[in-house]
Design a protein around this nucleic acid. Structure first.
Lengths: 330, 330
DNA sequence: ACGTCCTGTCGAAGCGCTTCGACACTACCA
DNA sequence: TGGTAGTGTCGAAGCGCTTCGACAGGACGT
């Protein structure tokens, strides 16, 4: 129970023998202050271990120096890559002397403007975006700054960072084609995500289907959740009905069920069946039957999304930045 | 660029034809307000879509209604369980109408008091705690409320939630003993973590060694990082030098390297060698050679840690709560 | 020598809220 | 009928900061 009364700017001003406003100008640099005065103020700050009070600052200046990150609804059961986004965003935020507020995006799209409306955050990072995303509509309508991890249908004026999903699928497809496979399955994100219009799933499907045609191979589009059970069931059915299919690409963890199904069907990987998965390298590395994986620099993506947003906050006129981080086969 | 001027309490007061303070009392309930007045105020709030301004509230009341969660330094390379802590804490925080501020705990233990000192948060959640943790010392010295995910040496007066690590090790050990193994290795956390005094690693080591004696089996304590490379090297060396060791317990992802080493040594799992790992069930389920795993309810732990802290914030006199979430073999 | 422009400093007015003390007013008991 | 408790409401004083306008004084031009 120490520090009952934290040090205030008034105490610094008194100790340094200057006006309150002078202290403020030393701190913000918004007006010039003479060397001797500046030194006295800085010394007083040092001696009293002064910390500017965030809320007071936010109230007076109208900016909270905080950004909000909305986590996707847990029921989406997406890949654990999110953690890495968050870590990347946290780091970029700290480095730029901002704070990161976390919130869960509940079903209500209105929730996404709450923290900014309350003055607790200056802008928002959204993830797991949809082609037609009501949350983005709200943010636009309210005029709040935001950036996306992921993409949406209309990208004009929007800052986002996304994985180059189409590139990843193309690369993977080219890889299996080169291995001589003539029929390939894509274990895409869960059907509900496709139905909801989850952009990454739509892109994966479209690119997969058109590139398969280009390459002259059969492409089977198989949505499946990431749970082992469901992927196993779907894969088993597929292996039985389409025996000429000897390769699969998964957009995430569906490979676990797939691998189980292959084992049950007595097909060896990679001799008799090829599997390529789009998951973070940190996981690919850790898996026991070493998979052909595609690296997804998620930390980088989180970092970029935060930086874009903060840049926009600092200078309203910053043009929107759009960045596709690309993936490599590993 | 809509919403240029957000609605303020003064506008509500004017519209409802009451005093500013009355609006405040309606909102906080700290003084009674007559039914008709209350209704007029609530109607005005509804009509104007009023949102109380967080920073102003924090400034006037001295409480930010926000808690801070410090992520461990990234270089620790701990298991991806952290994500689940964060998700759990986020959820509990939202439910209780608090906000969650994320920050990375840099090396400087002083950083851990910054957000509270700046009035941006009312309390702190710490994870990956050490037996002797300078961060905890600082928080205690400053008199800031906090709760831990993990434990420390001196637990008097401290609220924490931790995994029952000793129970997990005991259970695992009993499990392999029942299978008839007479020499078991413990792949503990990395040597640097042990050296730093990471509590979980110390507990794992101590319990493992004493229980092995009790059960009359040989226990080899083998610290190893979670990287596949290092675990592989260590496991290979171990298999060569201690051929009578036919079982291993890992505290995390070291099993990946271990499994590779076993394959290289032509030992089959689980026929010729048993592996038990302490990792979140969500991952155990997903792994292809289905492992004997120990479930670690991390979401629950994050939730509890946040709840404990918020309870303490709401009522200073709340006694500290200490909670060990226990694990089950799956 | 005077006016003009900077530069550096100060005081004061908020930002939107909480909360304290004051003050009607009603209800109740003697 | 007066005194005493409540109730319900209001006004005003902050919370710790930013920022605007004012203004002294020195440096410069003529």
């Amino acid at each position: 129970m120490a520090d009952i009364r934290p040090v205030t700017m008034a105490q610094i001003a008194e100790r340094a023998g200057v006006a309150l406003s002078t202290v403020s100008y030393v701190l913000s640099g918004k007006r010039s202050v003479s060397q001797p005065m500046r030194k006295r103020v800085l010394d007083a700050i040092e001696e009293l271990d002064y910390r500017p009070h965030g809320p007071a600052r936010a109230l007076a200046s109208g900016a909270s120096h905080t950004i909000a990150l909305y986590l996707p609804s847990p029921q989406w059961q997406l890949v654990p890559i999110q953690q890495t986004f968050v870590a990347g965003a946290t780091q970029a935020t700290s480095v730029r002397d901002y704070a990161l507020l976390l919130s869960t995006a509940v079903a209500d799209p209105e929730a996404v403007t709450r923290l900014v409306a309350q003055g607790r955050a200056d802008g928002v990072i959204l993830m797991e975006t949809l082609r037609e995303d009501p949350r983005i509509e709200r943010l636009k309508a309210a005029g709040y700054p935001f950036s996306l991890i992921g993409r949406t249908g209309d990208l004009t004026g929007i800052s986002f960072v996304d994985m180059d999903f189409s590139g990843a699928i193309e690369t993977s497809l080219a890889h299996v084609a080169r291995l001589g496979h003539t029929c390939v399955a894509l274990f895409n994100f869960a059907p509900e995500l496709l139905a909801a219009g989850y952009t990454a799933a739509l892109i994966a499907r479209d690119v997969f289907e058109s590139r398969a045609v280009d390459l002259g191979i059969r492409g089977l589009h198989v949505p499946s959740s990431h749970t082992r059970r469901e992927a196993f069931a779907i894969a088993s059915r597929l292996l039985a009905s389409e025996p000429e299919c000897t390769a699969a690409i998964t957009t995430g963890w569906q490979f676990t069920g797939l691998l189980s199904a292959l084992r049950a069907a007595d097909l060896r990987v990679p001799d008799e069946f090829s599997v390529v998965s789009v998951i973070a390298a940190q996981f690919a590395e850790v898996l026991t039957p070493a998979l052909t994986g595609v690296d997804w620099p998620a930390f980088e993506a989180g970092r970029l999304a935060a930086e874009m947003l903060i840049d926009k906050l600092k200078d309203k006129e910053t043009p929107p930045r759009q960045h596709l981080v690309s993936a490599e086969l590993v």
